[in-house]
Design a protein around this nucleic acid. Sequence first.
DNA 1: CTTTAATATAACCATATAGTTATTGAACTA
DNA 2: TAGTTCAATAACTATATGGTTATATTAAAG
Lengths: 119, 119
Amino acid sequence: MSQSERLDAIFTALADPTRRAILARLAEGEASVAELAEPFAMSQPAISKHLKMLERAGLVSSGVAAQRRPRRIEAAPLAEASGWLEEYRQLWERNYQRLDALLAEMKALEDRARKGKPQ
Amino acid sequence: MSQSERLDAIFTALADPTRRAILARLAEGEASVAELAEPFAMSQPAISKHLKMLERAGLVSSGVAAQRRPRRIEAAPLAEASGWLEEYRQLWERNYQRLDALLAEMKALEDRARKGKPQ
DNA sequence: CTTTAATATAACCATATAGTTATTGAACTA
DNA sequence: TAGTTCAATAACTATATGGTTATATTAAAG
């Protein structure tokens, strides 16, 4: 899977409040499907579908314990998405700084012009 | 709009390669719709739709210059998404540290047990 | 005033999401 | 072995996405 495809899957997975809540729960430790479903007014198959999308994005992995399939959160994709965002945020920030510097320079030129030619 | 709804819109907007490429282009400065459309094998209305989703998420804003509607990137939603990700990444990280510390402690106990009762 | 340029909007189609209920399957439990 | 529990899968519905072409809108340029 290319990085672009991974980012598609990661951001798609993060774009739903139920899935973000599931991640929040899993950040505190492993949980079974039933435990993950408990806070939601939603059927068990609905939660299983959400888990499938989180797994497709690599954000969650699954274990085996008797009939349970405990899920846990995986850090790598979170880091990848976070890294992508930071890159563009900082790139924008740098350009914004440049624009800021340019505006400051223009203002300085204006001020000098006013001083040189008063009234 | 609640933070959850904002995150829905932001992550949905980021979950498409065309829209991420548009953001990458806008990180370098303002651009018209035609300029943004140029690199893609896609119609102008398709790009306008993508821009609408980016605007709904607050990631992009629009100006007016003659017939042009120059778009520029907005930093705040990028920061919000980035912040959300970092929060969960670090929460997970802390729990991982705890598990790590626990495993180290168990290993130390084991080692002491072996030393105290050799053979 | 007519034409041209840059975008937006409408109407449509195919596929993906987000949910449902019903059913299946696998592994404990009595 | 029969029943129960936990989860996955199937089949279905409604809505959202992602694209198309055709048309409307708005402002500049002749």
